[in-house]
Design a binder for these strands. Structure first.
Lengths: 111, 111
DNA sequence: TAAATTAGCAACCATATAGTTGCTAAAATC
DNA sequence: GATTTTAGCAACTATATGGTTGCTAATTTA
């Protein structure tokens, strides 16, 4: 599940400002929203929104279901953990550097 | 400093897998690396690497300095905080949903 | 001083991206 | 049953992206 492809898709999904805003609108919404409802929040066309939804969906950040002629979209923040984990690696690097500095300082002969 | 432009650049810098790897190599390095040294780690041309460095630099994730005919690159993880802060917003959303669920459950008349 | 190394600049290429418009199909409403 | 609404599909456009090659300039090294 958490493959190299997945993380690429999540980063890609989130790299576009409009797409981040679409995601935000869905996160802030109290219920699932149709494509038309989402489009109301933006200046771009419905087709434009649909394309963004598709990319977000591929990253797993949005789930959709059909109901009659409408398609409803819900946000799913779980894949953001891919990004969190990616960041963690660099926290670790940071810690290691602090530690090795600390080691260096404490093991230095006193005076 | 922490403008809308900045966060766009950081997300963009980090959205490409090769660029994430360049950043990673620099983070893992114990000293600053020249363009040629970085290129050794990749299958792409020096010019390709230079382009990636430029984007990383614009995002502030890489700092460079010249020394003779060489240019040295160092990673700077600080702008990653832009991403951390962006993620925090959705932790908050998450918390709020848990809280309102909790509120709903505890305020429900007992039996 | 001549040769080799390091890197910048510019032009180019193929593909991806963000967006559009036009048309069609299926539900919902009148 | 006719009309409106909602959305998908396809084609198109402009620009950005990731990559290349060729050439030039500057610094090192021999």
């Amino acid at each position: 599940m958490s493959s190299k492809e997945t993380i690429n898709k999540v980063f890609k999904a989130v790299s576009d400002p409009t797409r981040r805003e679409v995601f935000h609108v869905l996160m802030a919404a109290s219920a699932a929203m149709s494509i038309a409802q989402i489009t109301e929040h933006f200046e771009i066309s419905r087709q434009g929104v649909t394309k963004h939804i598709k990319l977000l969906e591929e990253a797993g950040l949005v789930k959709t279901f059909e109901k009659g002629r409408e398609r409803f979209c819900e946000s799913n923040p779980t894949p953001l953990n891919e990004i969190r984990n990616w960041l963690l690696v660099y926290d670790k690097f940071w810690d290691d550097k602090i530690k090795s500095l600390d080691k260096f300082l404490t093991q230095r002969p006193k005076k």
